[in-house]
């Protein structure tokens, strides 16, 4: 997957768009599943247990997201922060996994590279893949069900009429990375240059509770790194993300994982000032 590709794979029942892009976003080539709101705001990885390739996520009636690793299937379920393996026969899976009306999964599969892709049906009870349709010499790769979808009719956008976006970090210590207490002192921001490099935007202090508040240019890639008191980089964001023009976004932590809901406390940075540090790069 090229680092600039983003392939929408489903519209979830809660209105988000599920799409496939490289991990880390903007730089990497390992396919991963992400979500974004229909107005382009709130982009984030669906889960933070980044590991193997993840292709073609689709939502089934239970709300789970089923996807392929290429040679096996797995799913995300609402109760778990990590993917759950699905006991399906190994082989090669391609295209989307669709759920039929009676709960079976319709997949495109072949046993090996010398075979063609066939449409198969899988159920948890059968454990195997029942052949549905195959055509000799033809790869059947992208089934599409004609079925009613129960999804939202519209999705409101709360974007403001601003060229910039505000980003608030609640607690950068809430993270999958380990930071010593009190070690994070500064955050640095970067914009992406035309050749994919970095352009320095600015620095902002990080409060004792790990919070900081910055304003960035909307609709532009941005990247952060956290530094200690000696300006040594403690952690650097691997990829890029964006905030839409007029978006106001708050992060629970730095790569905290969607399973972390925020702790209820007034961020220290807002007690100090309600004016964000200028990371727009216009000055």
């Amino acid at each position: 997957m090229h680092q600039e590709n983003a392939l929408p794979s489903d519209v979830l029942r809660d209105g988000r768009i599920l799409f496939e892009a490289g991990y880390p976003l903007g730089t990497g080539e390992t396919p991963e599943l992400y979500t974004v709101y229909p107005d382009g705001s709130g982009v984030e990885a669906y889960r933070c247990d980044h590991a193997r390739f993840r292709y073609g996520g689709r939502q089934i009636s239970s709300g789970d997201i089923v996807f392929s690793h290429g040679y096996s299937l797995a799913r995300f379920t609402s109760a778990s922060a990590k993917e759950v393996a699905v006991a399906t026969p190994r082989g090669e899976y391609t295209g989307d996994i669709l759920e039929t009306a009676d709960g079976a999964w319709l997949v495109s599969w072949r046993g090996g590279s010398s075979s063609v892709f066939e449409l198969r049906l899988w159920t948890p009870e059968s454990g195997g893949l029942d052949k549905l349709f195959a055509e000799a010499g033809t790869n059947l790769v992208q089934p599409s069900l004609v079925t009613a979808r129960s999804t939202l009719n519209h999705f409101p956008s709360g974007l403001h009429e601003w060229p910039t976006a505000n980003l608030l970090m609640l607690n950068s210590y809430t993270s999958k990375y380990s930071f010593a207490k009190g070690s994070i002192k500064t955050v640095r921001g970067y914009a992406q240059t035309a050749d994919g490099g970095r352009r320095f935007l600015g620095t902002s202090p990080v409060e004792k509770d790990g919070s900081f508040f910055v304003q960035v240019k909307g609709d532009a890639p941005v990247q952060f790194e956290l530094l200690d008191a000696t300006n040594r980089v403690l952690q650097k964001q691997k990829g890029w993300f964006w905030a839409r023009r007029g978006e106001q976004r708050v992060c629970v932590g730095c790569h905290a994982g969607p399973e972390h809901s925020p702790e209820n406390a007034v961020p220290a940075t807002l007690e100090r000032t309600v004016i964000p540090a200028d990371f727009t790069g216009t000055k």
Binding site: L168, R249, V250, E259, S261, P262, N264, V266
Partner: peptide, 18 residues
């Protein structure tokens, strides 16, 4: 567990209520 002290910018991730 209401989250009244943080800006109500989102709902995802249990943002408004636990």
């Amino acid at each position: 567990r209401p989250k009244n002290l943080i800006p109500l910018a989102h709902v995802e991730h249990g943002w408004a209520f636990g």
